[in-house]
């Protein structure tokens, strides 16, 4: 009878050791990408604070549990001391968590106010519209931020599942997004912004970020919106300001040409 009992204890200890291992391994593994915007950097720091607090608490509590399991296993029929509790200890382990919670909440509140700061009136604005199952990005040529470009009208990028759209942004400038939806709820989620915000019919949401790195980043809808929710992907390309201005110029030229074509087509249709 002794042997299986020992094996169980060993197993229990081993599985808990595995848990402990998981906890410490997560320090190395569970590292969120650091983000590419000012806001993301700050939110990532907050994430790390949460992570270190959690891992510390986990290791302390799980070790205590592990110790208790090994140390206090049943050896004989002697009844252990019948402790019913202790008010002092209860107050301690109610009070300490309250303090921890208030610290973490305060930190999260500071970060929240920082990342919720709105952009100035003249900042580059992109109007994002979600629809089943793609995205539309509209740039107002009068609202392109600090660029040299002079023009009237808008640039519209519309994606299709086969041709995922690209959202082009200049680096080191604050961008404001306005989000809206024409059908169901979608969510604008760029992993490297460490941020998402929903597109809700009947409501306009806005947020701003300042990207600090150039490159191409993948993004996709994060709110279940129907059959092809998984295919509602897009990319964000962050470029230097000159490249951005050049891109605007080229795209504007193409689109006005397209619009002219469309106008002639429509005019022809009317004549017929």
């Amino acid at each position: 009878m002794q042997r299986p009992l020992k094996r169980i204890r060993l197993l229990a200890a081993l599985s808990l050791a595995a848990v402990l291992g998981l906890g410490s391994a997560s320090t190395a593994l569970a590292v969120q990408p650091g983000g590419i915007t000012d806001e993301a950097h700050e939110m990532h720091d907050l994430f790390l604070v949460m992570l270190y607090f959690s891992i510390a608490l986990f290791v302390i509590i799980a070790s205590a549990l592990l110790y208790a399991i090994i140390r206090f296993r049943r050896k004989d029929d002697e009844l252990p001391k019948q402790v019913h509790g202790s008010n002092r200890i209860e107050i301690l382990w109610t009070g300490l968590p309250i303090i921890i919670v208030i610290i973490l909440f305060t930190l999260s509140l500071i970060t929240l106010f920082d990342v919720e700061k709105k952009a100035k009136q003249d900042a580059l604005t992109v109007e994002v519209t979600g629809f089943q199952y793609q995205w539309q990005f509209v740039y107002d040529l009068n609202d392109l931020g600090v660029g040299e470009f002079e023009g009237e009208g808008t640039i519209t990028i519309i994606g299709t599942p086969a041709n995922e759209p690209e959202l082009v942004l200049p680096v080191n400038e604050i961008v404001e997004f306005t989000l809206q939806s024409t059908d169901v709820i979608h969510s604008f989620y760029v992993r490297d912004f460490l941020y998402k915000l929903d597109l809700i019919p009947g409501r306009i949401n806005t947020f701003s970020v300042t990207p600090r790195e150039t490159g191409v980043f993948r993004a996709q809808c994060a709110e279940l919106c129907g059959v092809n929710h998984a295919l509602m992907r897009f990319t964000v390309r962050i470029v230097e300001r000159e490249e951005f201005d050049e891109w605007i110029k080229q795209t504007a030229k193409h689109q006005s040409a397209d619009q002219e074509d469309e106008k002639t087509v429509r005019a022809n249709e009317r004549e017929q």
Binding site: M43, L46, M50, S108, Y189, L194
Partner: peptide, 16 residues
């Protein structure tokens, strides 16, 4: 791991 989502700015990344 639930407390992560209580920190609102962290939840912006983790939600959904």
């Amino acid at each position: 791991n639930g407390t992560f989502s209580a920190a609102v700015p962290v939840d912006f990344a983790l939600h959904d």
